[in-house]
Simulated scan of single mutants.
Amino acid sequence: MSETEVPFRPREKLLEKQKHFQSIHKHTYLKGPMDKITSVAIPIALAASSLYLIGRGIYNMSHGIGKKE
């Protein structure tokens, strides 16, 4: 059984994509079209929400809000 495996993409498309990505002079984690969302927006949103929650917790502790009796 000497079947050759069918590639996922044609070789021409692959070479075209390689040339495209090699011509971009950005950081490697920002080269794709959706990479700004996953590499920049999500970490900023997580950091902002965690800073907000930490600040709210410190405020509540310093004013005695939300204590259990």
Rank of each mutant, 00 (worst) to 15 (best):
residue 47 A to R: 07
residue 56 R to H: 11
residue 26 K to F: 02
residue 65 I to Y: 05
residue 31 K to H: 08
residue 41 A to M: 10
residue 60 N to Q: 08
residue 14 L to I: 15
residue 29 Y to Q: 13
residue 50 S to Q: 01
residue 66 G to I: 05
residue 41 A to P: 00
residue 58 I to F: 09
residue 24 I to A: 08
residue 14 L to F: 13
residue 56 R to A: 10
residue 24 I to F: 05
residue 23 S to H: 04
residue 55 G to S: 03
residue 10 P to G: 12
residue 2 S to M: 15
residue 30 L to P: 05
residue 32 G to T: 06
residue 19 K to M: 01
residue 2 S to V: 14
residue 35 D to H: 03
residue 52 Y to E: 02
residue 65 I to V: 13
residue 48 A to H: 02
residue 9 R to Y: 09
residue 49 S to Y: 15
residue 26 K to A: 08
residue 2 S to R: 13
residue 41 A to G: 01
residue 53 L to N: 05
residue 57 G to N: 09
residue 58 I to C: 14
residue 25 H to A: 15
residue 50 S to P: 00
residue 52 Y to S: 00
residue 56 R to G: 04
residue 64 G to I: 02
residue 10 P to S: 11
residue 3 E to H: 00
residue 32 G to S: 14
residue 9 R to C: 14
residue 55 G to I: 03
residue 42 I to Q: 01
residue 62 S to Y: 10
residue 58 I to R: 13
residue 18 Q to K: 07
residue 5 E to N: 10
residue 17 K to S: 11
residue 68 K to C: 02
residue 37 I to Q: 10
residue 64 G to M: 03
residue 17 K to T: 11
residue 19 K to V: 01
residue 1 M to K: 07
residue 21 F to Y: 13
residue 63 H to P: 00
residue 64 G to Y: 05
residue 25 H to S: 11
residue 42 I to G: 05
residue 28 T to K: 11
residue 50 S to I: 05
residue 36 K to V: 08
residue 44 I to N: 04
residue 38 T to S: 12
residue 51 L to N: 11
residue 69 E to P: 05
residue 46 L to V: 11
residue 35 D to Y: 00
residue 27 H to A: 11
residue 13 K to P: 06
residue 10 P to C: 10
residue 41 A to H: 12
residue 61 M to T: 12
residue 2 S to P: 13
residue 30 L to A: 12
residue 7 P to Q: 09
residue 32 G to Y: 12
residue 43 P to V: 00
residue 3 E to V: 05
residue 35 D to R: 00
residue 9 R to G: 14
residue 36 K to C: 11
residue 29 Y to F: 14
residue 69 E to S: 08
